[in-house]
């Protein structure tokens, strides 16, 4: 078959350019030897990145975000795995309704979730705002994502493997540890990575629920008002973009590879 020019391909390329164009300006200007994000470019420099490393409040915010992100991704995945197992392997009464409820954070505007949590923390529990309250909010956002990833993974492989294990005399726990968990591992890894990204990038809930300790997005937001801090902001933003992209690619590759190796017949 001869290749014809496909206008849709042109459209798709333009689409991707539009999608990435604005975002790629950030790394471009962060390497530019100037204090404004303006054309013409003046010359290549890495000094904005050097200044960034010396900014102690930025480094503290980075540390806070890493701690919250790691804690949240591990906790959310640990909670989502049994929940996903329950909804895919057992007959839970009102399972559909419970699942719909747990997926609500995907559609409710996050400002509503944020102010609701704020009332609970300040008025109901009387707790001070801290990284713990931020983490609680992130946990609520991450559990539905973790469950979505894990449920599709658990539905994706052959249940007869688990039945075989049980028929051969393995108990529930041993079947889980020796059959289910290894098969679900790619889902677990991509859930860990995605939950980390969600927490690391989340702004609105952190903005409402943080005390004196900033997470990185909250710090970034506070910097956006100062034009003279633009170069440092651009450098930080570029690093976050690159880091997120690497994690997403990693998560996707792990997930795809897992699917491909278990079902060699599938595409």
């Amino acid at each position: 078959m001869t290749r014809r020019f496909d206008p849709l391909l042109l459209y798709a390329v333009l689409f991707v350019l539009f999608l990435y164009g604005p975002m790629l300006l950030m790394p471009l200007f962060s390497l530019n030897d100037g204090n404004f994000a303006t054309f013409p470019l003046k010359g290549f420099t890495l000094r904005h990145y050097g200044e960034m490393a010396r900014n102690t409040s930025m480094m503290t915010a980075l540390k806070n975000s890493l701690i919250v992100g790691l804690g949240v991704s591990v906790t959310a995945t640990a909670l989502a795995l049994p929940a996903a197992l329950a909804l895919t392997r057992y007959r839970v009464p009102a399972g559909g309704a419970i699942l719909s409820f747990m997926m609500l954070p995907l559609v409710v505007p996050s400002i509503v979730l944020a102010v609701g949590l704020l009332i609970v923390v300040l008025r109901l529990l009387g707790l001070p705002l801290s990284l713990w309250t931020v983490a609680a909010g992130h946990l609520m956002l991450c559990i539905p994502f973790g469950m979505t990833v894990l449920m599709s993974r658990l539905e994706g492989f052959d249940k007869s493997l688990e039945e075989a294990s049980r028929d051969l005399g393995a108990g529930g726990w041993s079947t889980f540890r020796r059959v289910t968990l290894p098969l679900a591992a790619p889902g677990v890894i991509s859930s860990l990575l995605l939950c980390f990204i969600i927490s690391f990038d989340e702004f609105v809930i952190s903005f409402f629920l943080t005390g004196t300790d900033n997470t990185l997005p909250v710090f970034l937001f506070s910097q956006l008002r100062f034009p003279n801090r633009l170069p440092g902001t651009l450098a930080l933003g570029s690093l976050i973009l690159v880091g997120s992209a690497v994690l997403v690619i990693l998560a996707e590759v792990v997930r795809k590879r897992g699917v491909a190796s278990d079902n060699p017949g599938d595409i």
């Binding site: 995605l194 969600i198 702004f203």
Partner: peptide, 14 residues
């Protein structure tokens, strides 16, 4: 999956 805040901010640069 990349930061919503940064995607919005990039339009401010544009």
């Amino acid at each position: 999956w990349t930061s919503y805040l940064l995607r919005v901010f990039s339009w401010k640069i544009v």
